[in-house]
Design a protein around this nucleic acid. Structure first.
Length: 208
DNA sequence: GTTCTAGAAC
DNA sequence: GTTCTAGAAC
């Protein structure tokens, strides 16, 4: 019913207007800073040590989806210096530990988005089933299955060899618009619903 | 990053 | 008529 939706929208707009007085910019509340809030949400925290925090992704794109975030403020990949190499290796090790502890059988990948939407460096640890209601769009799919998803080992290698990590933003953004295809068999898929039902037919165990 | 929805695709 | 996606959100 169109009317009830527009009524709901008006309530949302009122709530938005009240939380953001005219002429005021609340940057702490901007969506791109959302990982800061998540990092302090007890319901999402998996573990911490002196250098990092591991949280569950608030909108997991697979059965298991974690984010490993350094406590040190590092906005993005471009901010990385060689002095961060030990930290990056530690982040990957913890990510692998958490994955192993969570599910010994299922395949995981560990990596970064080349052009992330959210501020604060975060390493994804994501199981390869991609079976989740929060996985909805082509952009979601391509961000984890195209070269837009850069393995942790590749980031580390690049920082060691080039002393910086600087991915081409335009090239990587274009990966998000690639045609849909299965990440296991490569078969082209018409749309997200058919892709999602197709990938359920594959196995994602480590030895398969 | 998500939500919402107009209009394209079917 | 229903499903699906792309783009605005001040």
């Amino acid at each position: 019913m169109a009317e009830s939706k527009s009524v709901k929208r008006k309530f949302d707009d009122v709530a938005k207007a009240e939380s953001k007085p005219s002429g005021t910019k609340k940057f702490a509340g901007h969506w791109s800073q959302g990982l800061l809030a998540s990092m302090n949400d007890p319901d999402l925290i998996v573990e911490k040590d002196d250098k990092l925090t591991v949280i569950k992704d608030k909108y997991p794109k697979a059965k298991h989806h974690f984010l490993v975030m350094p406590k040190e403020t590092i906005p993005n990949l471009k901010s990385l210096k060689q002095e961060h190499l030990d930290l990056l290796k530690h982040m990957e090790k913890i990510a692998r530990d958490v994955a192993q502890r969570t599910d010994k059988k299922i395949k995981f990948r560990f990596g970064y988005h080349a052009v992330p939407s959210m501020s604060h460096l975060h390493l994804h640890a994501i199981s390869q089933d991609f079976d989740s209601p929060s996985l909805k769009t082509k952009k979601h799919w391509n961000s984890f299955t195209s070269p837009y998803f850069v393995d942790s080992s590749e980031v580390i290698k690049r920082l060691e060899k080039e002393h910086k990590v600087d991915f081409n933003q335009k090239e990587n953004t274009e990966y998000l618009s690639l045609d849909l295809k299965c990440h296991v068999c490569g078969r082209p898929m018409k749309n997200m619903p058919s892709l999602k039902s197709h990938i359920r037919t594959h196995s994602y165990t480590c030895d398969s």
